[in-house]
C-alpha cells in the first residue's frame, strides 16, 4: 500500500509567540505519519496562503492565541478562495470564545479545536476530512 501521506501546513498567524500548541500538534501529526510544514511565528495571511500553495498541502492548521482571530482567520479563508485553494481543509485552534465560532466556520474554517482537545482527536479529524490525500 503506497498511500500518499497527508501534507499539513501548521501555521501561526497573529502577533503572539505562544507556539507550544502549534509545535505539539506539528510533532503529533508527524508521529501519525503526516508530512508537516511548520510556518514559524507571526505569518501574515498572504504568507500562509502562499506557503500552502507552494507546499501543495491538503490541510492548514492555524494556531492563534492573540484574540485577533475574527480579523485574521477570515482573511486567510478569503485568500484561499481567491487562489482557488477551496479544497484545502482549514482547521484552527487557540483562545477562541464560543460566540465567535459559528461565524468563523461559516467563513470556511472546518473545525475549531479549543484548549484541552487531544492530539488524537485532531489527527482523526484531519484523516477523516482530507479526502484529497489518497488521490
Amino acid at each position: 500500500m503506497s498511500e500518499k501521506p497527508i501534507r499539513v501546513l501548521v501555521a501561526k498567524p497573529g502577533l503572539d509567540g505562544h507556539d507550544r500548541g502549534a509545535k505539539i500538534i506539528a510533532r503529533a501529526l508527524r508521529d501519525a505519519g503526516m508530512e508537516v510544514i511548520y510556518s514559524g511565528l507571526r505569518q501574515s495571511p498572504e504568507q500562509i496562503v502562499n506557503a500552502a500553495l507552494q507546499e501543495d498541502v491538503h490541510c492548514i492548521g492555524l494556531s492563534i492565541l492573540s484574540g485577533a482571530h475574527n480579523v485574521i482567520l477570515p482573511r486567510i479563508t478569503d485568500l484561499l478562495r481567491e487562489k482557488k485553494l477551496d479544497d484545502v481543509l482549514v482547521v484552527a485552534g487557540g483562545i477562541i470564545p464560543d460566540q465567535d465560532i459559528p461565524k468563523l466556520k461559516a467563513g470556511g474554517i472546518s473545525e475549531i479545536f479549543l484548549p484541552g482537545t487531544s492530539t488524537q482527536t485532531i489527527i482523526k479529524y484531519i484523516e477523516e476530512n482530507c479526502g484529497a490525500a489518497s488521490d
Binding site: 497573529g14 502577533l15 492573540s66 484574540g67 480579523v71
Partner: peptide, 17 residues
C-alpha cells in the same frame, strides 16, 4: 501585542490585535 512587539497601532500587522 503590537505594543509588546514594538509596533504602532497603525502598522499593517497590528490589524485585529
Amino acid at each position: 501585542l503590537p505594543t509588546l512587539m514594538g509596533l504602532d497601532s497603525d502598522h499593517p500587522t497590528a490589524s485585529g490585535e
